[in-house]
Amino acid sequence: MLLKNWWKILSFFFLLYTFTAGFLGSVPVKPILNETIRNLYFHVAMWMVMMIFFIVSVVYSIRYLRHNKPVDDIYATEYARTGIVFGFLGLITGSVWAKYTWGDFWSNDPKQLGAAIALLIYLAYFVLRNSLTDLDKAGRISAVYNVFAFAMLFPTIWIIPRLVESLHPGGMGNPALNTKDIDSRMRMIFYFGAIPGWALLGVWISTLRIRMQMFALNHQTNG
């Protein structure tokens, strides 16, 4: 029990650390941002975790295309689903944050638009998947589409945000965070608390859904 589920407990402690140290720890003093810089542990973490899950998803899609095992397709779908959930949470939290720092919920900023386009492309993955009734065909076509959707992440959230001017920090180099804005204390909580904590929580949710789908799959084939 404990040997199998230790990482679920670990994720709880990571988040416990993020939530307490994230609010009680001191942060760099910045104009406009003020205390909202703490959103790094929550808003920025959502995007990082989304990227992790989209990478996992595309790996399983490629595996499915190579070996044609239905299990891989289930993994790819469920990780993409969790990725989308985290992506939308990132988009919504980002627009709340933008309201109080940039002055508007949505200012058609290139980074906001890029992220929205990327998420819509991933939503289409599920539209496509659900529109096909043949299970095998749905698996193969959506796996191919998943590779395309993943490829579209490069221009929409990794390349264009680096090239154009934006309200969002980090115009040069890293598109998500200006490395000069955060200090080592924040980096510590971010990389050793928020990212692993949220990521493991997402993995847990994904595995629950995967097990659900596997259960359904086994019962379909068994009769």
Binding site: A21, G25, S26, V27, V29, N34, E35, M188
Partner: peptide, 20 residues
């Protein structure tokens, strides 16, 4: 982790932050 938080707290006492 707790100990590192303690050290950070010590550091932060030195500079005053009026806007926060």
């Amino acid at each position: 982790l707790g100990f590192s938080g303690y050290i950070q707290a010590q550091d932060s006492l030195r500079n005053v932050k009026p806007e926060m």
